[in-house]
Computed example of a mutant assay.
Amino acid sequence: MTHQVPRQATFDGRGLLCVTLLLRLRAAIADAPAGTLVHVRATDPAAPLDLPAWCHFTGHHYLGPVDEDTYALRTAADPAPTAPGAPWHRPAQP
């Protein structure tokens, strides 16, 4: 029996406002395998609220704070898409 070591990644979003942070985070983890543990570094005061809400919206699994400015999430197998310039909206339907 083989065991795969879970993949890990760190995303440094310090200094970014949450909308920009979420757009860049989305791009950074777009090709990450399901189950990847992602540590997100964020200094925006809204991050403790926005990250879990965004994870819920997209289907990623918010794991909680790691320390003062680092939060953890685990990538979903099939996250819900969001609009290109808006992390809080679904893509427009044709």
Rank of each mutant, 00 (worst) to 15 (best):
A27Q: 13
R26E: 02
L37F: 12
V38L: 02
L21P: 03
T75H: 04
D69P: 09
L63H: 04
C55K: 03
A76L: 02
V19C: 01
D31H: 12
L51V: 12
D67M: 08
A72F: 04
A42F: 04
R26K: 11
A32I: 05
L16I: 04
L22H: 02
F57I: 04
P33T: 13
I29Q: 02
L17S: 00
P33E: 15
A76H: 14
L37T: 05
V66E: 12
T43N: 14
A34M: 11
P33S: 14
P45T: 09
V40P: 08
L17K: 06
G59T: 04
L37N: 13
H61N: 13
A47F: 14
A47K: 05
R74L: 10
T20A: 10
L22I: 10
L37M: 11
L16S: 00
R24Q: 15
V19W: 00
Y71K: 03
L63V: 04
H39L: 15
P48C: 00
R24E: 14
T20Y: 00
P52V: 11
P65V: 06
D69T: 14
T20C: 01
L16T: 04
A72E: 12
L25Q: 02
H56V: 11
V66S: 08
V19P: 01
D44S: 11
A76K: 09
Y62F: 15
L51F: 09
D50L: 13
W54Y: 08
R41E: 15
A32T: 02
R41C: 15
D78A: 14
A32Q: 15
T75A: 07
V38S: 07
H60W: 03
T58D: 01
P52Q: 03
L49F: 13
L22S: 03
D69N: 13
A32F: 10
F57R: 15
P48M: 05
T58E: 07
R26L: 01
D31E: 14
A77G: 15
D50W: 01
L22K: 00
Y62M: 03
A77P: 01
A77W: 01
T70E: 13
T43Q: 11
L63E: 14
D67Y: 05
L25C: 01
F57M: 09
G59C: 10
L73T: 07
L63A: 13
G59P: 08
T20S: 10
G59H: 11
G59N: 07
A76C: 12
T70K: 09
T43R: 10
E68R: 11
G35P: 06
C18R: 08
H39S: 14
L23F: 06
H60D: 01
P65E: 14
A34F: 09
T75W: 03
E68P: 00
T43W: 06
F57K: 06
A47H: 10
L25V: 05
A76M: 06
L22Y: 04
G59E: 09
D50N: 11
T75G: 02
V38N: 10
G59M: 09
D31F: 05
